[in-house]
Simulated assay, not measured.
Amino acid sequence: MKEKLGVVPFWQGYDRKEVLKIARIAEDLGYESIWIPEAWGYEQFQLLTEIAKETTRIKLATGIANVFSRSAGLLAMSTATLDEISEGRVILGLGTSGKNVVENFHGTPYRKPLTRLRETIGICKTLWRGERLTPEQSTLAELRHFKLAMTPVRADIPIYVASLQPKAVRELGRIADGWVPTFWPYEHFNEGLEWIAEGARDAGRDPSEIELAPFLGVVPIEDVDFARSALKPMISFYIGGMGTYYHDMFCRFGFTENADLVRDLYVAGNKQESIAAVSDDLVDAIAICGSPEHCRERLGEWRANGMGHGLVGLSPGATADSVEFILKAVAPA
Score class of each variant (00 low, 15 high):
Pro37Tyr: 07
Lys17Asn: 14
Val7Cys: 04
His309Ala: 05
Glu87Arg: 09
Phe250Pro: 01
Tyr14Pro: 02
Thr244Lys: 15
Leu148Val: 07
Arg228Thr: 00
Phe226Met: 13
Tyr266Asn: 04
Asp156Glu: 10
Ile25Ser: 10
Phe255Cys: 02
Arg57Phe: 06
Gly130Phe: 08
Ala155Thr: 11
Asp202Arg: 15
Glu18Lys: 06
Ser315Thr: 07
Gly30Leu: 11
Ile25Tyr: 14
Gly300Arg: 06
Arg57Thr: 14
Asp260Arg: 09
Glu187His: 07
Gly199Glu: 07
Pro214Glu: 14
Phe183Pro: 00
Gly300Asn: 03
Glu54Asp: 13
Asp281Gly: 12
Gly310His: 00
Ser279Glu: 06
Asp206Glu: 15
Arg201Ser: 12
Arg174Gln: 13
Ala65Asp: 09
Glu198Cys: 08
Ser229Cys: 09
Arg116Glu: 04
Arg252Trp: 11
Leu261Ala: 13
Val7Ile: 14
Gln12Arg: 15
Glu50Pro: 00
Leu48Asp: 01
Asn190Tyr: 02
Trp179Ala: 08
Val323Ala: 14
Trp35Thr: 01
Lys99Leu: 10
Pro166Phe: 02
Pro214Trp: 11
Ser229Ala: 14
Gly93Asp: 02
Arg70Val: 03
Thr256Gln: 15
Gly41Phe: 11
Ser97Gly: 05
Gly122His: 10
Leu311Lys: 06
Pro135Arg: 11
Val180Tyr: 01
Asn104Trp: 07
Gly243Phe: 10
Leu261Gly: 03
Pro214Gln: 13
Pro332Trp: 00
Val323Glu: 09
Glu211Gly: 11
Arg70Gly: 09
Glu273Ile: 04
Phe255Val: 03
Lys125Phe: 15
Thr62Ser: 12
Phe189Ser: 03
Gly98Val: 08
Val67Ser: 07
Pro181Cys: 08
His309Met: 10
Val161Tyr: 03
Asp321Leu: 11
Phe10Asp: 07
Leu299Cys: 01
Val67Pro: 04
Gly306Lys: 01
Asp280Trp: 01
Phe250Asp: 02
Val224Thr: 06
Glu136Val: 05
Arg263Trp: 05
Lys53Val: 11
Tyr42Gln: 10
Leu265Glu: 06
Pro135Leu: 11
Val330His: 05
Gly6Met: 01
Ser279Gln: 06
Val262His: 12
Arg205Tyr: 13
Leu60Thr: 13
Arg132Asn: 09
Leu20Pro: 02
Thr115Ser: 06
Tyr186Asn: 04
Tyr238Asn: 06
Phe237Asn: 04
